[in-house]
Design a protein around this nucleic acid. Structure first.
Lengths: 226, 226
DNA sequence: TCCGGACAAAGTGTATACGAAGAACAATTC
DNA sequence: GAATTGTTCTTCGTATACACTTTGTCCGGA
C-alpha cells in the first residue's frame, strides 16, 4: 500500500498534512490499518512518502476525530470501535441527524431538492447495476448533502465526522447495507421537499433506526471490541 | 503574557503540544488573542517558550475545534464567532445537552448526584461571596460533570467542545451571567436525581433557553461578526 | 495622483538531524 | 523464579535549512 498512496499524494498540492490526514482516514476506514494496529511515525511517513512532520500533524487531528488513540511517549494506534461505541454514536446521531433533516426541510431551496433527487436517481440506477461501491458512495453524498443544506456548520461538521465513523464500522464488518435503505432515503427527501420539519425528523429517525439495527447486526459478526 | 504562560508550561509534563493547545484555547477564550488576530507560528512559539513544532500541532487541533482558522500558506488567525454561529451552536447544544441530561438522569449513581449537589453548594456559597470567577468555574464544572455522568464519550467530548465556545462568546462580551442561572441548575440536578429522563431533558432545555437568550443579549454588545 | 510591476521581507511548508527520555523486552544475576 | 540491568525502539522536542507564497513597499511612468 505504500506505493499507490505515495503516487496519489504527489499529484495535488494541498498541504501535505491534509493529504496525509485524508489518506490516513481512508486507510483506516477501508481497513488497511486495522483497529489496534500500531502506527509509528516512521512507518506512516514511509507509507505516505513524506517526512515525519506532516504525519505528526495529521495524527493529532486524527486523534481529535477519534480515529486513532495516542498514548504519550508510546505512540499512536488505530482506535478500536466497541459495541458501546456504536450505541453511543447512534444516540448522538439520532439527535443530530434529525435536527439536520428538520433544518433541511425548513430551508431547502428547489435547487437543493433537485440535487437530492438527482442523487436518488443515480442511487436507484447504481442499485440496479449492482454497483455496490457506487451505491455506498452516493449514500454518503446524499447524507452529507442534507447536512450541508441544513446550513448549520457546527451540525454539519460534527455529524460528518460521526458519519465517517459509521462508515468505518460498516466497512469493518464488511457489510454494505445497500439495497434496503433507498426506500427510506426517498421518504426522507420527500419529507424535506414538503418543508414539514416534523415529518422530516420522523423520516430521519426511521432511517437511523434501521441503520442502527443494521450496524448491530453487522457488529455481531465481530471485528472485536477488545 | 509570554512569561506567565511559559512558567506554567514548564511545570507539568504532559506533551508540550497539549500544554500549548490548552494555553492557546485559554488565551483565546480569555480574549488574550482576539478574533481576527493573526497567530504566526513564531509568535506563538515565543509566547509559549517552545519551538515551532508543538505549536503547529496544537494549531491543527485548535483548527479542528474551531478556535482558529488556518489558511494554507497564509497562516492561522483567531476565529470570529458571528451571531449566526451563536444560533447554530445553541441549536446543536439543545439537542445534545438535553440528551446528556436524560442519560445522566437514567444513569446517575447516588455518588454522582452527591457530587453535583456539592458543586451546587459551592456555587451558592461563591455567589454569596460575589466571587464571580469562581461561580463561572463551578458552572463549567457542573456542566462538564453532567456530561461525564451521561457516560457517552462522543456526546461528552462534542458537547464539551461546544461548551468551550459558549464560554468564549460570553467572555468576549464580558458578561458573566452568574447569579440567575443557579436556580435552573438546581432544577436540573433535582431532575437528574429523580431519574426521570423527560423531566431532566425539560430542565436542561429551560436552562439552555435562558443561556441562549443571555448569549444574544450579550452579543448585542457587539464583539463584531465581521 | 494613481497605477502597475519589480523587488524585498515575512511566514508557511517540508525535510532533516540530533539529543533526551520513556517503554518494552530481553538478558543477566542473585 | 524474581528482581535488576541493559539494550533497543520510539516518541518528543529542538534546531536548522530552504523552497515557495503571499504580502508589502517602493519606484517609475502615465
Amino acid at each position: 500500500m505504500a506505493e499507490d498512496l505515495r503516487d496519489k499524494l504527489g499529484a495535488q498540492h494541498l498541504p501535505l498534512r491534509d493529504q496525509v490526514l485524508g489518506a490516513l482516514r481512508t486507510a483506516i476506514i477501508d481497513g488497511d490499518y486495522l483497529p489496534g494496529e500500531r502506527l509509528t511515525e516512521d512507518r506512516l511517513a514511509e507509507d505516505f512518502g513524506v517526512s515525519r512532520n506532516p504525519v505528526r500533524e495529521a495524527l493529532r487531528v486524527a486523534e481529535a476525530e477519534g480515529f486513532v488513540v495516542i498514548l504519550p511517549r508510546r505512540g499512536a494506534v488505530v482506535a478500536s470501535p466497541s459495541s458501546g461505541t456504536i450505541t453511543d454514536m447512534f444516540a448522538v446521531r439520532e439527535r443530530l441527524e434529525t435536527l439536520a433533516a428538520r433544518l433541511a426541510a425548513e430551508r431547502a431551496t428547489a435547487a437543493d431538492v433537485a440535487s437530492l433527487r438527482a442523487l436518488l436517481d443515480q442511487g436507484r440506477e447504481a442499485t440496479h447495476r449492482q454497483d455496490l461501491a457506487r451505491v455506498a458512495e452516493l449514500n454518503s453524498t446524499l447524507h452529507l448533502r442534507i447536512l450541508q443544506i441544513s446550513g448549520n456548520p457546527w451540525l454539519s461538521s460534527i455529524a460528518k465526522s460521526l458519519y465517517l465513523h459509521v462508515q468505518w464500522i460498516f466497512r469493518l464488518g464488511a457489510a454494505e447495507r445497500a439495497p434496503h435503505s433507498w426506500a427510506e432515503h426517498i421518504q426522507l427527501v420527500d419529507a424535506i421537499e414538503s418543508g414539514d420539519g416534523d415529518r422530516a425528523e420522523r423520516a430521519a429517525l426511521d432511517h437511523l433506526d434501521a441503520a442502527s439495527a443494521a450496524a448491530y447486526e453487522n457488529a455481531e459478526g465481530g471485528y472485536g471490541a477488545h
